[in-house]
Computed example of a mutant assay.
Amino acid sequence: MDITTSTVFIPGATSGIGLALALRLQAAGSTVVIGGRRTELLERLADEHGFDTVPIDIIDPASIAAARDTVLARHPSLDAIIAMAGIMTAEDVRDAGFLDDALRVVETNIVGPLRLVAAFVEHLQTRPHATVMTVSSGLAHLPLAATPTYNGSKAFIHRFSESIRLQLASTSVEVIELVPPAVQTDLMPGQAEQPGFLPLDDFADEVMALLRSNPHAAEILVERVKFLRFAEVEGRFDAAVAAVNA
């Protein structure tokens, strides 16, 4: 992914990691289109930063199709999508009421990216060079007890990314998996103030540096996430699980 010349669509870019990357990609020279559900926030970001914006609800197939048609009509040179939208919810499976939240996580974190890839993959294959960036998590590789469905959803995204990378290897589309650690965002209540979490700006700056130094990387791994990503392969899984869940 050439961060200086790409035309990128990022649903879920009205806050957090998505917005931080959108701002940095735009500053690097890319054309950035951001999407989200809140039209008033999209309008404000367009006014403040000059983004093109498109309303999109990642759990609504009709909304995704409409967003695709709008984006491609305005930006036929689109050559990258970043499947940024996701939610994280604490659950307790000892209470059957956890299911409603779990299904919402699955619909957003798994089905949403599947629909997004399906909506854009044929167009991306027409571009000389194109990118699908998925967003998993360090928790795809090491479980946090409080968020079982979130962990599983990100494990799915990890394996899905590896699989479609193989299928798309003969095309012009590369697949890059962004693997965040715990970052100071509003993903969960109080997370933005957690002192042990990686500050958002530090995370986004490191991601951009990694993309700049290796634009065709299969995975984008900031230093902080390697403790999670490689716990099992380095033979320290049980100790790492205990540390994360202390």
Rank of each mutant, 00 (worst) to 15 (best):
T89D: 13
A90S: 14
A90D: 12
R94A: 15
D95L: 12
A96G: 10
G97P: 05
G97T: 14
F98V: 08
F98R: 10
D100L: 11
D101E: 13
A102E: 12
R104T: 14
V105H: 00
V106Q: 10
T108K: 05
T108Y: 05
I110E: 03
V111Y: 08
G112W: 03
P113N: 08
P113H: 04
L114G: 06
L116F: 11
L116I: 14
V117C: 09
F120W: 04
F120E: 01
V121W: 01
H123S: 07
T126P: 09
T126W: 10
H129A: 15
A130P: 00
V132C: 07
M133K: 04
V135D: 01
S136C: 09
S136G: 05
S136W: 00
L139P: 00
L139W: 02
P143H: 09
L144H: 11
L144M: 13
T149V: 15
Y150Q: 03
Y150A: 05
Y150P: 01
G152L: 11
G152P: 04
G152Q: 09
S153L: 06
K154Y: 03
A155N: 01
F156P: 02
F156L: 11
I157N: 00
S161C: 07
S161T: 07
S163Q: 12
I164R: 02
L166F: 10
L166E: 14
A169G: 07
S172I: 05
V173P: 00
V175T: 04
V175N: 01
V175F: 01
V175R: 00
E177W: 02
L178H: 02
V179M: 02
V179K: 00
P181L: 08
P181Y: 08
A182S: 13
V183Y: 02
Q184W: 08
Q184V: 06
T185F: 08
T185K: 04
L187H: 05
M188P: 03
A192T: 09
E193V: 10
Q194E: 15
P195S: 07
G196F: 01
G196Q: 04
F197R: 01
L198M: 15
P199Q: 08
L200M: 07
L200K: 02
D202Q: 14
F203A: 08
F203S: 03
F203Q: 04
E206Q: 15
E206F: 08
V207C: 07
